[in-house]
Amino acid sequence: MPEKEIAISIQNLTKILGGRKVLDNVSFDIYRGEIFVIMGGSGHGKSTLLRNMTGALIPDSGKILFNGQDLLKLSVAERERVQRRFGMSFQSSALLDFLNVEENVSLPLVEHTKLSPKVIDIISKMKLSLVGLQGFEKYYPSELSGGMRKRAGLARAIAMDPEVVFYDEPTAGLDPVVCAVVDQLILDLTRKLKLTSIVVTHNMESVFRIADRIAMVFKGKVEQIGTREEIRNSKNPIVQQFIKGELEGPIQIT
């Protein structure tokens, strides 16, 4: 296997929200072409971590390097240019509800490229067929099921042929079979389109189905990073309690 190239490097990231340290000196690297899963309980900072990477939140201190470039030092215009190489799939899929599926998927293309409407039409049809939604172009988000909306959101995330795709809880609120479908989709897209995927989830089944490497976030810190096997055989009681979903252990729910 060739030398692993670092796509995103997080260095000493700290974020304070509402007087609380939501992220506390977090550092790790994400390699190109891998599926990197961030798991952890609700309220322990995994979504905040994701939002710092996508640019929705600005960290209080630390660095976020993308291809060696510090995102926080870029001007707004440069930052926007980098952001176009990111795709994001949201927990609530966040499709604009006054646009139909096709218009949603083609929105970034219409806004950021000078492609002719015909080409945009072909691209968005292609992206929709990649997620198995051909034939649903004219449907509005409210007319789709939860799983279909998730997939349409995914199609929008990959519309601009991004290098990195972020997924916020891609399987939350879906039934087990649809979960498996979405997981398979993430795997397929990552391999076929040579993406780097960063997934935030607390669904253990899908973690062990898709992850190349896993980071366990606990109380704003990264508890452990490792491959599927390393995490499964972890000696860390926090990780063990979390992946087994046990009541007794160091994680206390108040």
């Binding site: 996508t54 640019g55 929705a56 926007e80 952001q83 176009r84 990111f86 994001m88 949201f90 927990q91 609530s92 966040a94 499709l95 604009l96 509800d97 929105l107 970034p108 806004e111 950021h112």
Partner: peptide, 16 residues
Amino acid sequence: SMKVNEQIEALETMAI
């Protein structure tokens, strides 16, 4: 309601 449903954030993430 777009803000509450993450749609505003989605626009920002798409640099719109």
